[in-house]
Simulated assay, not measured.
Amino acid sequence: MSDASCIYERIAAAGIKLNPPGKPVAAYVPFVESGKLLFLSGHIAKQAGQPWVGQLGRDMDTATGVGAARAIAVDVLGTLQAATGDLNRIARILKVLCLVNSSAEYREHHIVANGFSETLEEIFGDAGKHARSAFGVAQIPSGACVEVELIAELR
Score class of each variant (00 low, 15 high):
52 W>H: 13
20 P>E: 05
33 E>T: 15
116 F>H: 00
115 G>K: 00
16 I>W: 05
88 N>I: 13
79 T>C: 07
34 S>G: 08
145 C>N: 05
78 G>H: 04
110 H>L: 07
36 K>L: 09
64 T>R: 14
80 L>H: 02
129 K>V: 04
110 H>S: 08
8 Y>W: 09
68 A>H: 00
143 G>R: 01
123 I>D: 02
73 A>W: 00
56 L>F: 10
31 F>E: 06
16 I>Y: 05
14 A>V: 06
127 A>N: 07
39 F>W: 12
135 F>M: 14
12 A>W: 04
152 A>V: 15
76 V>K: 02
124 F>L: 00
92 R>W: 09
44 I>C: 11
17 K>Y: 14
104 A>C: 06
71 A>G: 14
126 D>H: 10
59 D>W: 13
106 Y>H: 05
113 A>H: 01
143 G>D: 02
107 R>A: 07
28 Y>W: 14
75 D>E: 15
76 V>Y: 01
76 V>H: 05
54 G>H: 05
130 H>A: 12
13 A>Q: 13
135 F>C: 11
58 R>L: 15
44 I>R: 08
33 E>L: 15
7 I>P: 00
62 T>Y: 06
45 A>Q: 08
94 L>S: 14
153 E>P: 09
71 A>R: 02
154 L>K: 07
138 A>V: 13
8 Y>M: 13
117 S>P: 01
118 E>I: 01
44 I>K: 04
3 D>H: 15
130 H>E: 04
107 R>V: 06
136 G>H: 04
138 A>P: 06
21 P>R: 03
31 F>A: 09
7 I>H: 01
8 Y>F: 12
90 I>H: 02
37 L>V: 08
65 G>M: 04
112 V>S: 05
123 I>W: 03
138 A>I: 11
139 Q>K: 09
108 E>C: 04
60 M>F: 12
147 E>T: 10
52 W>N: 08
61 D>V: 08
64 T>D: 14
155 R>C: 12
149 E>L: 13
144 A>T: 11
141 P>F: 11
142 S>F: 15
71 A>N: 06
25 V>M: 12
63 A>R: 11
49 G>S: 08
22 G>V: 13
105 E>T: 11
131 A>C: 10
28 Y>T: 14
58 R>E: 15
55 Q>S: 14
82 A>D: 09
20 P>R: 03
127 A>K: 05
85 G>Y: 03
131 A>Q: 14
24 P>A: 08
116 F>N: 00
